[in-house]
Every structure is written in structure tokens, then in C-alpha cells.
Design a protein around this nucleic acid. Structure first.
Lengths: 142, 142
DNA sequence: ACCGATGATGATAATGGTTCTCATTTGCAA
DNA sequence: TTGCAAATGAGAACCATTATCATCATCGGT
């Protein structure tokens, strides 16, 4: 279990407070790689940590802006966060079992930037999700 | 102005009602290719058609399930619909004014398929959204 | 170590998009 | 034309998220 490091927060210009350390610690513990605000909130309650839901939302957004976390807008209306480990990646999602794999392809990245720039857009961000059936034995799609 | 065709509705197992014809007509008129439920509702009000917002949501969802429309879950929390014309394309969305442009890039498409196949996935579908600032004069981002 | 300004927190209200409820109306087959 | 199942519309309910605001904690300066 990695323990949350106050310097990480200082480094990105955030005061090292209890709620922030707890939340960062949750992600760094690696138990769950992808978590929604609600997930984080419940986890904290479960461990007896008394953090407000509003704070969870605020902190997650701050962490995203600071580059500590990456936000994903999946279907179903809720945002999901994961630890930013430096390298951007896209996702392949199995429609049957929900298995998620990450990938990065330089060719796709550069084509995207080129296309947007040609059309006069200043790229902020992008999301690429491939929906498919996987071939894992555990996967229920027959 | 193309007039909405009741047979389209019958063909997909939906009664041909006034609200449904009006909404389908809006998309077929091609004035706006991408519309949210709110957009559709306002358009209808503007043309003096008295349709409830709840009905707009219901009908859009039905049209999506019937394959008449395609739903896109862009950032910003609202769903956007467009007429399903069979050919796949991806989207660039302006984060400031909501302007949407479509694009298709064979290189990206083939890379996606290759990546998924290599990992043992059978691709069903995918979504690629680029989020950016556009340069239209009307666009509010200064 | 203490203090005080600055910034963070948490309870709750507010928001925005979407869905639900249900009384009323409509399409359509007989 | 008539009857009834299906569709509609007004508004309430819902859910994730954001805003408000009084209280509280952090941290640099003392």
C-alpha cells in the first residue's frame, strides 16, 4: 500500500488537506482503478472517513485539472476517474463482460490533431472508445 | 422541405402520430443536422407546434431504438441526435458554442480495427470525439 | 509554537438534463 | 363510428453535479 504523499499536492499548488490526502490515497492504493465520485464517497464512508460529497466532487475536479487524475465520460451519465500515469490512452470496452483494455496509437493521435487543426479547431481533448466482444474464456458472450 | 413520411414510422412499428411526424420532419428538413432534445423542443415551439418536452425525449429515444436516429453522448451532459444515414463518421465538438463537425479518416478507422483485432476483440462499434475550441466569429470563447 | 489570512470543508439548496406519473387525448382496426 | 390500447402533455420526481455560505484547517510569518 503506497501512502499518499503531501508533496504531490504541494507540487500542483494544492494545500495538503485531509480529504485530499484520503482521496489521493484511495486512487494510489490501486484497489479500484476506475472510480466515480459516488464510488469514492462510499469508499471513504466505509473506511470511517467523514468527507462530504461536495468535497469529493470538488477534489476530483481539482485533481483532474492538476493532472493527477483523468476523467472519462462513459455512458450512463456519470464521470469516472483514474490515476494519471502520464501516458494518454484510449479504451476498448467489451460489450459483454465490461472488460476494459487501454491502448495508445501514435498514428491515430497525430491524425486526430491534424484533422482538427486543418478545420480551425484548437484541440482540448478527445475520447476514443472501441466497443467490441472480447475473447476471454470468462466472457459470457457464448 | 421534405415532408415526413408516415410509412417510415409504420415500418419501424411506431404509430404515426402528430408529434412523431413533426420531430421526424425536423430532422429530415436538414436545417440542423445535430440536435439535442432541448433544440428540438425549441424548434417546435418556434414553429407554433405544441409538443411537450417529455414527448420529445420519449420520441427521440424511440427513434434511436428504431434506428432512425443516432444518439451521441458528448461532453457537457446532453445527448445529441442526428438522422441515421448509414455511413459512419466521427465528430469534432466545440466546447464553447457546441458547434459540431463530422469527419471520416480511413487511416484512423483501419488503425482502430487493427488494434482491436490484435488484442482479440471483435469490433462492434466505436466512438471518437475530439473536443476543441472552434474559430467561428459567433463562438463566444473570446 | 502561535496567529491570522487565505483557502478548504461540509450541509444543504439549487441546477440541468432526463425520466416518471397519470389523467386526458389520439390513432386506427373493426 | 366506436372502443380501446397506445400516445401525449403538464408537472413532479430523479440523479449527477455545482453553487452557496457559515465554519474550520493549513501554513507562512512572527
Amino acid at each position: 500500500m503506497i501512502k499518499p504523499q503531501p508533496e504531490h499536492l504541494k507540487d500542483v499548488g494544492l494545500k495538503s488537506t485531509l480529504p485530499r490526502l484520503k482521496i489521493l490515497g484511495l486512487f494510489e492504493s490501486g484497489q479500484e482503478r476506475h472510480m466515480s465520485a459516488e464510488d469514492v464517497y462510499k469508499q471513504l464512508l466505509a473506511s470511517g472517513d467523514d468527507v462530504g460529497l461536495a468535497t469529493v466532487y470538488r477534489v476530483l475536479t481539482q485533481f483532474e485539472q492538476a493532472g493527477l487524475l483523468v476523467r472519462h465520460n462513459f455512458e450512463g451519465g456519470k464521470s469516472v476517474f483514474e490515476l494519471n500515469q502520464g501516458k494518454h490512452h484510449d479504451h476498448i470496452v467489451c460489450l459483454q463482460c465490461g472488460h476494459v483494455e487501454e491502448f495508445y496509437d501514435a498514428a491515430i493521435e497525430s491524425r486526430q490533431k491534424k484533422i482538427a487543426t486543418e478545420r480551425g479547431f484548437a484541440v482540448h481533448d478527445h475520447s476514443l472508445h472501441i466497443y467490441a466482444d472480447c475473447i476471454k474464456k470468462e466472457c459470457p458472450h457464448k
